[in-house]
Computed example of a mutant assay.
Amino acid sequence: MSILGRLLGRRSRGGGAALAVDPAHGDEELRGLQARAAAGDWPAVRAGLDAVADEADRTWLIAQLAETAGSETWLAAAVAAEPDSALPLLLAGARQISWAWEARTGARAQHVGREQWQVFGERLEKAEEQLYDVAEREPGWLAPWYFLQISARGASLGPDAARYRFEAALRRRPDHLGSHRQRLQQLCRKWGGSHEEMHDFARTATLAAPEGSPLGELVALAHIEHWLDLDSGEDRAYITRQAVRDELYEAAKRSVLHPAYVRGRGWPGAFNTFAMAFSLAGQPVTANVLFRELGDTVTEFPWAYLDADPVEAFRTCRTAAARAGG
């Protein structure tokens, strides 16, 4: 039985309203930029990014655009056509990281082939070169330091490099959720950290932030990552502990369920994360509150942890939550 089946004690029958992963996270501006990127229209993509003043927002948009298949080709041309511009170089570096992970796949290290490792390393090396160039040209920009955290983890550059890059990002934007997410990944046991380090970081960052901060999502992410690392049986026993449930409630009330919480760019990601966490924890009523806010906006992460088809995982958990939540 799949992880999803173990979670609910049965297999999903599917069906129901049509659902699909939304690569734009419900953001219509991003959806337009993704269409232009898919068409290779760099001038239009540049115009859209230039119009975004907030550094965190622009970083998030670039991270999503970096997933555009085939964009590495026209980005190379854009970099060559604008050798003195940092923006095409930034997007090209971000794309190299995404492209590297496409070669590596999401498999555990022991299941990645030699040729995959070689391509992965070559693309990460190119990303490092481009992103450091951007950081030197534009020392105030947040984005290169955000992406350099991901390349450092992939290239196994070690804890000192990872910490330096995280701190560099926070000097430019102390409340940046994306950088905190990357730091939490770095502290996961699967990346050489430990459950203790990961939970301590998540809880400390959450409690240090003002109420309504999006950083509360870190607590939910940490518990999901801990759950994922455990064997069948141990995983459910862990995530349904009262202490874990209490921490999830505390984090949700300080973030996504707090009146001061602002739904910024990519907010459905946090709601999907908490919805999955509460579903795993056997708290369908609270999960239902989050599902109702989401509507049909499904994000691939973290649902892909539950099933090869994230839409099926979302649908199954949402149905169970709706039955309990009324």
Rank of each mutant, 00 (worst) to 15 (best):
A18L: 11
L75Y: 01
G212L: 00
E128D: 12
A47N: 05
A243Y: 05
A86C: 03
A66H: 02
R31L: 03
A37P: 08
A162G: 12
Y164Q: 15
Y249V: 12
A37I: 09
R10T: 15
D235C: 08
P83D: 05
G26A: 06
D57T: 14
A169D: 05
P88L: 09
A109H: 12
L218P: 00
H223V: 08
A47D: 10
A66S: 09
G264C: 09
R183Q: 08
G40A: 03
E211G: 10
E28Y: 05
A152T: 13
L49V: 01
L207T: 10
L177Y: 04
G192A: 02
R104S: 02
R58A: 04
E55C: 04
R46N: 03
W227V: 05
A251P: 07
G140Y: 08
L30C: 07
R189V: 10
P83W: 06
Y238E: 07
D246R: 12
Q182E: 15
A202C: 06
P310E: 00
L177I: 06
H111R: 15
A243M: 09
A237C: 09
A222C: 02
L228G: 11
W60Y: 10
D200Y: 10
A107C: 06
L8Y: 09
E211V: 12
A260E: 11
R104C: 02
R36E: 12
R254W: 01
A251L: 05
S2L: 10
A44P: 02
A222S: 10
V256Y: 00
D160M: 10
T297N: 11
R153D: 12
Q110I: 14
A77Y: 09
G325Q: 03
L280H: 01
T286D: 08
R254K: 07
T73Q: 15
G266L: 01
P159Q: 12
R318Y: 03
D160T: 12
R323V: 15
E82N: 03
A237G: 08
A304C: 15
P310M: 00
E122W: 13
V285Q: 14
A47R: 11
T105Q: 03
G212T: 02
R171M: 06
A135M: 10
P302F: 04
G32R: 06
